[in-house]
Write a protein that binds this DNA or RNA. Structure first.
Lengths: 217, 217, 217, 217
DNA sequence: ACTTAACCGAGACGGTACGTCGCGTCTTTTT
DNA sequence: AAAAAGACGCGACGTACCGTCTCGGTTAAGT
């Protein structure tokens, strides 16, 4: 966060109302979720929706980029520890986080809006990629690599491709806005089952190996 | 479609310059492809980019919805005839159209922009679905059903699910804007091969059958 | 009139509709009389009011100045001959023309509009002065001078001042739009009577003689 | 009167710059005096001339009528007290105010413009009449009536007619724009002298008595 | 308790963009 | 060739919104 000063040095004078920060971020998520675009929103509109004065917004964030960055971090959730009994468990747990995020309307709409305007907010998009996407993909790859070490996963697969296949059907739903058809409990595990059955060490499947892809989770 | 008049009855007075229509639609595609949003664009900006006067835009389309609908139809391409030697050929051909569309930067950015603002343009999004998405999905389903009749495709599969699996990896790239990594020649066939090998009539694969999903191609 | 060609040489092709000229001039007078200003009117508005196409106006008059000049001449009326039995008769007759003109709403409103925008239409205002005002003032001065010769009018008066006093009360009503209170029959004669009684050769009245004024009728 | 608030209750927020009000009114007077029409002027043009933003004009006056009303009051001057030694003094003093107003180019041009478009600004014209013209005429009538009581003025005259005769020659100059020929010092007193000599209690003059007229000063 | 510095809301301000409207010109068909 | 219809570029208008600035009133830390 832009203003997060770890040193809690209280400045003299009246203190900022801590509820305003929350109200403003909530306002952004609500309006984005209601169909607004990142560039379409203005700090004025946000202030009106949040029920605070314009000054209170401008005082906290100088630009929309700064504000949106805080919004992104507000919807970020920590990754689960990879301590499952099997690689399949770990993968399913990670995939569950993705499904969970997709099912959170406000979070998924925010990400969709960001994807749609990646060119208009390049630094924001880059930081979003570095701070949210990359760690998650790394975790997924780690889980698969451990599976290879333990023998649960075939050694000659393209790890990136498998990650891709795992999350694509879920992410595609974000783009089209049809997330309601996802079963929060089962979807993750079903996909995991399918992909593991498909890429597992049993038969001759997946002989066709694509070159590695650099993609996001 | 404002100007689709099959009857070539010349109205009195000066005729509209047909090049302006084209220039305006091109301008929309260019600007959307450059990162603009549907709601962020204004007819004024479009006119400036197209090199025509505002009047000429307002005269042709009363609202942005009307204009965008014509833009959508401009990027639409006819579906290929399903007269391939095998069901696999037909599916690969259809999938090739999807890849082709995704590789057309301007078309894919336009669709991404539309997805991002589906709520802000509800009627536009609905008509886009009805007139572009639905026919393509119907064609894909038809191709698969013919495959079932001919024995190429297993009879107990969920057709909608297979369609979904076929196109998801491609469409996911639209959302994230990473379409450059798709091989225009091979991608469609490779995915087809994989899914056919997976859902073909040979072994016990794909025992896990999800309930049907209502999804777009 | 700008286009009046006395030679009636028929040009080839379709002939101009003579009713259009009249309709256009009437339209101008109507709209000015309804409160419009000279600069506020446009050839488009005039054409609409006259019920003709824009081209028909532009074809006849290139600029508004040209059109307004024809309008002014359309409302001009010839001066009566100064052949009355006495100077008083002649003056009363001339003053009657002024009252008559003032009572013609369309004419008086046109002149009022022209006065109000004298600076915006300098050449038009000048020609109006030369062709309409000056001859009338000259006629009035002539009538008074003849009165001096015949002994009806005192010789030491300021002719311009007397003209001024004669017409001022009438013209003031044009400016304020309160012309309805003028009696078309009597007003001219009453004022003449009063001024003649006042400036006649009888007593010591009007000893105060102002310097000559250059003023319009 | 948008801003005549005798109670100096400070509204919350930033206060309006009082110089802008003055600058805008000055701009109107300048442009009207330069030949513009009331309807021809736009708040945009006025703002540009005044050197303020359009917002600042629209914030103060919702319509042109509102603005023009304030302009009229800005050029209004208080009437002198009727405490002269004689009725003649009082009348001359009042007439001096009229001459003074006429000699103020900006004020007289403003009134001329208003007269020219009385129909286009009916309520404005009415309020101008009620708030500016009527009080002045009432004062003039009062001065004459006092003269009748004191014996300075004949009792059988038509007061409205005398008022009319007093001011007409001056007002007529407003309509034609030829105010430069008025002597600011002498004109008022000369006219007063003349009319008093004519309507005084001495001889047989002004035997012709018109019916009362309802007219403005 | 008093100072004081920052927060907060309200609103004025300049600037910019929008959609509309009207203008005068140009183009096409019809008379 | 006139006339009518209408497309076209241009520009002005009134509105709305944005981000900044100004200004009382409020609040809480620090003397």
């Amino acid at each position: 966060m832009a203003q997060t000063s770890d040193a809690p040095e209280r400045r003299p004078g009246r203190q900022r109302d801590p509820r305003s920060n929350q109200a403003i971020i909530e306002a952004v998520l609500d309006m984005i979720s209601a169909g607004a675009t990142l560039s379409g929103l203005s700090l004025v509109t946000i202030a009106r929706e949040a029920g605070v004065s314009r000054n209170s917004v401008y005082r906290r964030w100088k630009t929309k980029d700064d504000l949106y960055l805080d919004v992104l971090q507000a919807i970020n959730r920590p990754l689960p520890a990879l301590n499952g009994a099997s690689a399949k468990d770990n993968v399913a747990k990670l995939l569950g986080v993705v499904v969970e995020r997709v099912l959170d309307k406000r979070a998924s709409n925010m990400l969709r809006a960001l994807d749609a305007e990646a060119q208009a907010f390049p630094t924001l998009h880059r930081r979003y990629f570095e701070e949210i996407v990359a760690p998650r993909r790394a975790a997924m790859n780690l889980a698969l690599r451990r599976g290879i070490e333990s023998g649960e996963v075939r050694a000659n697969i393209d790890i990136d491709l498998v990650s891709d296949v795992l999350v694509s059907p879920v992410l595609a739903r974000v783009a089209s806005g049809l997330t309601s058809q996802l079963d929060p409990e089962q979807t993750g595990r079903r996909i995991t089952e399918l992909v593991f059955t498909g890429c597992g060490n049993i038969g001759q499947r997946l002989d066709i190996v694509d070159e590695p892809t650099d993609w996001k989770v």
